[in-house]
């Protein structure tokens, strides 16, 4: 029985991987661009979910995203650092900032932490506008197209980063970290009495989250060739990071990815149908999900849809 379950999960996964690897050969430039921005969003969603596993709701992922984006772009502009190295540098700088920010704020719980993360991202916008000599200010920073504009290469790079995020989340789920994160999320006081240092694990989760969010930011700046503070530090980025996992299903590998696929599809459809439609959709989806499917799409599938098939007589 064990082997059949293994078989059932490996086969679709293998097909999915093959499809993802061949994707650029199958579609045109427009869909490839959609895929790149979709995968970028998946990385942001999955990274947000890593921190959420400790019960902390960050509404300031845009801050880390922007730091990654700017670090990478500015390092290229000033020191001609190769873009991929710049992304790595952006990721590390975002991680460093998260340690500092985490130790300051992760002793706070629930809504208080969330509020400080909003303030963090908003403060960065102001700092960026006030220091145009260093940051480029409201004019932003521009860089040449990534890989000379080769979208296929960009696609494979972002796909590799997504694979790394998924691998890290999978490793977390297999390790003792999963117990620490879950225990802190479910009851921080009890976790503490059982020998778990809540702040330490929350900061660790925040660091992992920040690393990939920063990396994604770095990728975005080079792929997009142009960034401005209002865009990368925007609250909308932070909201997108949390809507997609909540929609798809929290604390799972597939949830944030599935949520992103569907939301991106809805968003893209609405964007071409009527203006600002996608922003209205974000709000609506968030409200509907919180009200009617608190465990997201995966929860709906496991709780409501899967049992319909299982309970059929003769199975």
């Amino acid at each position: 029985m064990g082997s059949s379950i293994r078989w059932k999960t490996t086969l679709p996964l293998a097909i999915l991987c093959a499809f993802l690897l061949l994707f650029p050969k199958l579609v045109g430039s427009y869909f490839l661009h959609l895929a790149v921005s979709g995968i970028l969003a998946m990385i942001l969603a999955s990274s947000w979910d890593i921190l959420a596993r400790t019960g902390q709701v960050s509404v300031g992922q845009a801050g880390l995203f922007g730091i990654g984006a700017y670090s990478s772009a500015l390092l290229y502009q000033r020191y001609a650092l190769p873009p991929v190295l710049g992304m790595l540098a952006g990721a590390l700088i975002a991680t460093f900032v998260s340690i500092f920010l985490g130790y300051l704020t992760l002793r706070l719980r629930g809504i208080y932490f969330s509020i400080t993360t909003i303030a963090f991202a908003e403060a960065l916008t102001v700092i960026w506008l006030m220091t145009p000599d260093i940051t480029g200010g409201a004019m932003g920073v521009s860089t040449p197209p990534l890989f000379g504009g080769d979208r296929e290469k960009a696609y494979y790079l972002i796909l590799a980063i997504l694979a790394a995020v998924v691998a890290v989340v999978w490793l977390i789920e297999q390790s003792r970290l999963n117990f620490a994160f879950t225990a802190i999320r479910e009851n921080e006081d009890v976790a503490n009495v059982l020998g778990i240092n809540p702040t330490k694990y929350k900061v660790l989760a925040f660091m992992i989250s920040a690393f990939f969010t920063g990396f994604a930011g770095g990728f975005y700046s080079h792929y997009n060739t142009y960034i401005i503070p209002y865009e990368v530090f925007n609250l909308g980025v932070s909201i997108a990071c949390l809507v997609m996992p909540i929609f798809g299903g929290l604390y799972t590998i597939a949830g944030p990815i599935l949520g992103t696929v569907l939301i991106k599809a809805i968003e893209e459809y609405l964007r071409v149908t009527f203006s600002y439609g996608h922003q209205i959709a974000y709000g609506l989806i968030l409200v509907l999900v919180v009200l009617f499917m608190p465990e997201g799409l995966l929860g709906l599938w496991r709780g409501k849809i899967l049992p319909l098939f299982r309970s059929r007589p003769g199975r």
Binding site: R176, F179, A180, T182, E186, N187, V190, L194, G195, I196
Partner: peptide
């Protein structure tokens, strides 16, 4: 704890494992 506080989303075994892992 006076008022029982098991981790609700963990199984009985996982609850106990948590203590053994970190305590």
């Amino acid at each position: 704890f006076q008022i029982m506080q098991p981790f609700p989303k963990m199984t009985v075994l996982e609850n106990v494992v948590t203590g053994a892992l970190f305590g």
